[in-house]
Amino acid sequence: MTINIGIVSLAYCAGCEVAIASMERFCGLIGSGMVRIAYSTLLVDREELENVDILFVTGSIRTYEDIAIIKEASRKALKIVAFGSCACFGGIPGLANTIEREELLREIFSPLKPSTTNSRSKLTRFIVPLNTIVKIDYMVPGCPPPEPLIETLLDSLIYGKEFVLPKVSVCNECPLNRDDKKPLKKPRRKLLALNDIDINTCFLKQGILCMGPATLAGCKALCPSKGAPCIGCMGPLPNSKDQAADMIDALSIFYSVEPPEEILKAIPDPIGLLSMFTLPYSTIPYHRRVGGERIEKDVSRD
């Protein structure tokens, strides 16, 4: 039996597709005929999406056309997978939720007037995660999704095993030394800490922001084990929507600084650092002027 896979890409970087295509196992499965790619603008030469068994959606929802595409595609799929952090939580493009759409486009339009030919599709007011538009069956977070997670997903496709995400945080998988006897350093800005960073010791112990405590496991702590602090690409833990709020709670337990404003020197940009990948997924997913009071005025404009 062949499993038909469709890959629909919205506003994306192709990293997710490259991550799957780089897996020898995946190419092997296609070569042996177990899996067939029915649609993907990157990998195959087909203009229309046909009925598929499983639909991978990558990229974030940025235009109204994206919404239309994904609604149309969801009717042709038995199962839908939100693949990668952009589809799951909005991803890094979601940081644009703090900027108004008109502002975002201002420079690209100037010195020309706004598009009159209507050939560019229109941006939505803000980025939303995929599950608010269509019902999804699986979420495979990560930027790009880590290989062990893709392996389990492939297993679930082929052998019908249930795909479940881990329920613990990155710290549970992290190999770094967290010796309690070692003194805790004051929180510092990453840029200033870089030259005396010790890549074998817990970063939070060294006063460097690491998103591990508030981030879902599944990557086998790839970044921390290779010397880089976690930036939170796997998204929030189960039963939580706000990675940033979780991390603020965690930081307050780690560091009791005096005066408390000192912590802002270490974390000068809470949105960018604490919810780099998950802003559109969180409880308050946008800047107030983007999703706030001025809606009536804006609707009439279009």
């Binding site: 970087c13 940025r62 940081l95 644009a96 790009p144 990453k190 930036i231 960018g272 780099m276």
Partner: peptide, 27 residues
């Protein structure tokens, strides 16, 4: 198509995070 606005996203971010953010322009 597929606009995301990275240059605007970068504004206000700590400069050491830029090398973490920009790879997401292209996979």
């Amino acid at each position: 198509e597929g606009f995301r606005g990275f240059e605007k996203i970068l504004i206000g971010r700590p400069i050491e995070e830029a090398p973490n953010i920009v790879p997401r322009i292209c996979g």
